[in-house]
Nucleic acid binder design. Structure first.
Lengths: 341, 341
DNA sequence: TATAAAAGTTAACGCGCGTAAAATATATAG
DNA sequence: CTATATATTTTACGCGCGTTAACTTTTATA
């Protein structure tokens, strides 16, 4: 700590013995100045702990170092985890990420886009709400701000989409379930929030037909993002009506499966792959909580790492000038075998 | 949308027929201008969708409208929920909240404080990591920025602390458990991240002694924020060693309880309050998932609403000039009876 | 209708930094 | 050691808005 409080770059330039424009250049890119100059600046930096005023910095910069990260529901640990992953990668790349959650509300989603605009971010990583999203608003936003979509695809919107190969998820699990027991029925929401749900259903149907089985689909009523509750009430209804038509249930996602497990518990159904069990239940996503359900949930793991890495790389490549055509990248899921199926 | 693109406040003032300083005043506080002036500005606002440049705005304002919200772990839905609650209240109060998670890492916590400083927020709502936090860094921060602490108390730091009455939580649950069955033992982490854990243990001990029972405490090994996993492995160890010494376990928090339930499942223990069950398990917090465990978890609900409301009110009162002495406010928990105990 | 108070206008400065142009210094190559 | 390319310095302007001061207009109260 220096004895003198540094107020601005002018003063800092003075104590470091370098001119202000060069210091400014340094803060924009430390590698853009001569090594000896850089050393001087960094020495002064250690002695005086000065940090440029971010507001003044961003005022005239054509592109800020800000990045927006928006997920549909931060209270879902799956999204919290992927947001964290993205956040870290942005920081490592020298950017300033800001996290937003639309909390399942399209109006909030639009407000965030607005607020994001005024942040003048150099790029945005966006997991849209999905079907509920105001497509026009998102498209307009993507036209103005370099945006990579992830998790939930709005076709041809933004620079690129990075996500999971939804049909492959279902297909993988159907193969496994058929190999080890009765063919599964498919348990989903009637009005899923996320377009992946449709692709997963199609993947299920294809896989079943490929294996010569008749697809059975059970749709739980309910809208919104309280998937566990929808899974529970839908599960209760299905169990009471004996509507699954098989002893094996593949859920469209883990949160639904968690709710179904609760319903099974309430109804006294034993879930698991052992002889004595009444039902096998599988999910999709490898939700952080699915390892701790009773029984632990067999599921298909999303490739968090690859999705977040590729999304960030794609965004920064574009931000840094490498223009490429719109591209969809899908990563495969990995089977996670646990006790539930 | 107007035909003309408004570039800055100068131009916007022109089209609205009001002088720039008055427009500036309006954006600082819409109520500070005459109703007729306000109407003119808002008419122009609808016709031209102009928004002031936030960087230029914050550059010289003594206090920005930014508010920082920091939680120890966004991937914990409990914190995600409370963060959402706080966020909404800030927006409603006309502030711009920004969310941060320290992800259980004290180094990250410090970095966020740094980055928060350069945001020049008018106030910060901070749930510190707890024992792992760098107290000195947090105290130094609180000396510079109006900060209200919540969830986890660092004594006498910041403007105020708002949280839950930890001993009351345990006490409430001990009363209930003793009333309805065997007195509980207390299941916690050996090295809890959060100072509330100690207070909950003390509340448990007090309540047990008050009721004439001998406290039994089982401490699970493990550090960090993977509470479920610690609860599971610790639970397995305790069950194998038959270390609980009673058929009733009160967990220090729900996440630990969730892990213990998994351990019970693995070991074939039936959990619940019915005759045929081997163990009763209770948690504390009313974690969003605790409704969906098998069996659903009996717990003590935190008063999210009151905590977040009071934290935000306290902060804004201070920000807006109402100085008050340091104050601790604790809200009581509410018993949530479910099937597990 | 007179008058004070409140609100608005004009003019001007400054915030902290990005950035550009021209002049100068330093490094690298031949 | 000169020629050339590359860095740095000097100088200067501008970004968009906050803010102040002196002045003028509108509104409220008597």
């Amino acid at each position: 700590m220096g004895v003198v409080k540094i107020k601005n770059m002018e003063e800092f330039a003075a104590v470091s013995g370098i001119s202000r424009p060069t210091v400014s250049k340094y803060f924009n890119d430390p590698d853009s100045v001569r090594a000896s100059t850089r050393a001087k600046i960094e020495a002064a930096l250690e002695a005086h702990d000065y940090r440029p005023n971010i507001y003044a910095m961003n005022q005239n910069r054509k592109l800020t170092k800000n990045v927006g990260i928006m997920v549909p529901l931060m209270a879902d640990p799956f999204f919290a985890e992927i947001a964290r992953n993205l956040e870290k990668r942005c920081i490592d790349a020298g950017y300033r990420p800001t996290l937003y959650s639309s909390h399942g509300d399209p109006a909030v989603e639009e407000e965030i886009l607005d607020s994001l605009r005024s942040l003048k971010p150099s790029g945005v990583l966006l997991a849209p709400l999905g079907r509920a999203s105001n497509r026009a608003a998102i498209e307009a936003f993507c036209a103005d701000v370099p945006t990579v979509l992830f998790d939930s695809n709005l076709k041809d919107t933004g620079l690129a989409f990075v996500g999971s190969d939804a049909p492959q998820f279902s297909s993988l699990m159907v193969d496994y379930l058929c190999r080890t027991g009765e063919p599964p029925c498919f348990f989903e929401m009637k009005n899923p929030a996320n377009p992946n749900a449709n692709r997963r259903r199609l993947g299920y149907i294809d896989a079943m037909e490929r294996l010569g089985h008749k697809p059975i689909i059970y749709q739980a009523a309910g809208t919104g993002w309280s998937f566990e509750e929808i899974g529970r009430t839908g599960g209760l209804a299905a169990l009471e009506a004996k509507a699954f038509g098989t002893n094996t249930v593949l859920c469209s996602n883990d949160r639904l499966a968690i709710g179904l497990l609760t319903a099974c518990y309430e109804k006294g159904y034993r879930v698991g792959r052992e002889e004595a069990c009444d039902l096998r239940v599988a999910g999709q996503d490898d939700h952080p909580f699915s390892r701790f359900t009773c029984p632990p949930l067999t599921t298909v793991a999303q490739d968090y790492e690859s999705v977040s890495r590729h999304a960030v790389e794609t965004l920064f490549r574009a931000v840094e000038g490498d223009e490429r055509p719109y591209e969809v990248t899908l990563f495969e899921g990995r089977l996670v075998m646990r006790a539930s199926a």
